[in-house]
């Protein structure tokens, strides 16, 4: 993939993040820099404690760096206020969590609707339900769905407001292999059919096979970047 031809949607520049835990200071990110391109399928890979979740939180606008800059489409969000960050999350970012975080007392359809009500150009909720293969289960509550089904609803909810970028935190972490593959297929579909950026953080190296690009994170820095000229289909992914 030729980076020079790609439009940069997010730029992380020298970002540091420190946490103070009592008298101990933890350096989660140590001046990390990288870019995310519009429409790419990015995998951020790294072992536990490497800082990958911190990166996701910062680029998702739910945490702020101690220093450094994060620019989204040219605007610095690293020092943005609460309202501006909320606007950013509302309009531009979709989140998929490892443990789904569906609202238990809303049905599958209502969970998706909840997010679509926030978007200015939302996707059709019924089409999304069909896309995730749960067209007939929209009236079911999370407790009536399997883990895989819940994660599919979570993905539909994340994409419902039609965000520029979809951030996924270990989306297959709580699922068995075949269900995980279904979830990856959905993410790929959203990436390809809607031309939206998808960034997945995981420690599952198998998933990087389907990515356009993989960032390897170690000790709060980018260890190396791998471009994938021929990403494989999700069905072919193995772990």
């Amino acid at each position: 993939m030729d980076n020079g031809q790609k439009e940069v949607i997010l730029k992380i520049d020298g970002v540091k993040k420190e946490y103070h835990m009592g008298e101990v200071t933890v350096h989660a990110l140590q001046g990390i820099s990288f870019e995310i391109f519009k429409g790419e399928f990015l995998v951020i890979l790294g072992p536990s404690g490497s800082g990958k979740s911190t990166i996701l939180n910062i680029i998702g606008g739910i945490d702020q760096p101690t220093s450094g800059a994060v620019t989204y489409k040219g605007a610095d969000i690293s020092k943005a206020g609460e309202r501006a960050l909320t606007r950013y999350r509302r309009a531009s970012v979709g989140f998929v969590f490892q443990f789904y975080n569906l609202i238990p007392n809303l049905t599958a359809r209502e969970n998706i609707l909840l997010a679509s009500e926030l978007g200015s150009n939302p996707l059709n909720v019924n089409e999304l339900l069909n896309m995730i293969g749960l067209g007939d289960r929209g009236v079911h509550f999370p407790s009536q769905l399997s883990g895989g089904q819940q994660q599919r609803v979570a993905i539909a909810r994340a994409v419902a407001k039609n965000p520029e970028i979809l951030l996924c935190d270990e989306p297959t972490g709580a699922l068995d292999f075949s269900t995980g593959i279904q979830v990856l297929k959905l993410l790929k579909t959203f990436n390809r059919e809607y031309s939206r950026t998808v960034a997945i953080i995981t420690h599952n190296a198998g998933i990087s096979e389907m990515a356009d690009r993989t960032l390897y994170i170690k000790d709060g820095l980018v260890d190396h970047v791998e471009l994938n000229e021929n990403p494989i289909d999700p069905e072919e992914v193995r772990w």
Binding site: I62, T86, R87, R89, R90, F95, L114, L118, K161
Partner: peptide, 14 residues
């Protein structure tokens, strides 16, 4: 708490 945090991440204002 978790539900409300999720809603905040989804982009809901306080």
């Amino acid at each position: 708490k978790r539900e409300y945090a999720t809603l905040r991440v989804l982009g809901m204002h306080i």
